[in-house]
Design a protein around this nucleic acid. Structure first.
Length: 278
DNA sequence: AATGCGCCCAACCGCCCGCTC
DNA sequence: AGAGCGGGCGGTTGGGCGCAT
């Protein structure tokens, strides 16, 4: 099947959007939502193709988009996520609330590739395909920057003006001997399985399969949420709402504020764990 | 002041995938 | 089963801008 090129948009406008067009699109979507992108231009009275409308909305007009320069922490996260996910920009964007795949792609090509160029990899890197990138085991996301970001994301303001404040949220971390456990919930139910409660003589790696996510993320029973330990490998933390690839507000509404889950994904160096899609 | 050059980023293009009929 | 369609994704483009000469 050969799809007709988007040249059915003959006579339709291309190029930069004007403020007037933006206004029309925003007000239409705000009052009607976007059901069928292809139908939107007609219904809204825009001389654009539906695809152009969708891109304009998702990359620029969406209210939950975080504008402005990327922080160093965000850039570090992108580098790390790119290491894990490759050029899957949408997957990376899903883990960086408020940032779009297009934006991340641009930042990667304009800034981050240069940054990595200056990085001298250790000799005999086993991965010669991208020898300029740091190896997984050389980056530890679990640093103060990331935790301050997490705290900020939960308590605002970066989650957006409409996000509920969670003054009682807290993050607990326990680290010892390169093992760590982290859990975040709202309210007083912070559940941290202390390392000393685990059998630290073993490398405690949870069995993570499809049922792990559904069993643990869909329940309001925090106590059943199993946090994982890891040995010397990298730890990556993702917000639950980001995993769901939805806006903070949407995800929070869906969860009905039952809880926030931040969880660790432990990845063996060179043995990447594919994150489940929700 | 004029010109050239490189960078940035919004927008586009083409392809793929999943759903519906 | 497969055609048709909408939506999503990654790669690419080109206009605007700032800086250097």
């Amino acid at each position: 099947m050969v799809r007709a090129p988007c040249c059915e948009k003959m006579g339709l406008k291309k190029g930069p959007w004007t403020p007037e067009e933006d206004q029309i699109l925003v007000s239409y979507i705000q009052s009607n939502g976007h059901g069928n992108w292809r139908a939107i231009p007609k219904l809204a009275g825009l001389l654009r193709c539906g695809k152009s409308c969708r891109l304009r909305w998702t990359n620029y007009l969406r209210p939950d988009i975080k504008r402005g320069n990327f922080t160093r922490e965000e850039e570090d996260s992108i580098i790390q996520l790119h290491e894990m996910l490759g050029n899957r920009w949408s997957a990376i964007a899903a883990r960086l609330p408020g940032r779009t795949d297009n934006e991340i792609k641009n930042v990667w090509h304009t800034h981050l590739k240069k940054r990595l160029k200056n990085y001298q990899p250790p000799q005999n890197s086993k991965n010669n395909n991208d020898s300029k990138a740091p190896s997984t085991s050389q980056i530890n996301l679990k640093n103060s920057h990331n935790f301050s970001n997490i705290q900020e994301d939960i308590n605002g303001p970066r989650s957006g003006p409409n996000s509920p404040q969670r003054s009682s949220s807290e993050i607990s971390t326990v680290t010892a001997d390169s093992m760590a456990v982290t859990a975040v919930t709202n309210g007083d139910q912070t559940m941290v399985k202390q390392l000393d409660e685990m059998d630290s003589s073993e490398n405690f790696i949870p069995e993570i399969d499809e049922s792990f996510w559904t069993d643990n993320l869909s329940t309001a029973d925090n106590s059943s949420f199993v946090m994982a330990g890891a040995h010397e490998e990298l730890q990556v933390q993702f917000p639950f709402h980001a995993m769901k690839q939805e806006s903070v507000e949407m995800a929070e509404a869906k969860l009905e504020d039952d809880m926030d889950f931040w969880y660790n994904v432990f990845i063996k160096s060179g043995d990447l764990l594919e994150l489940p899609e929700f």
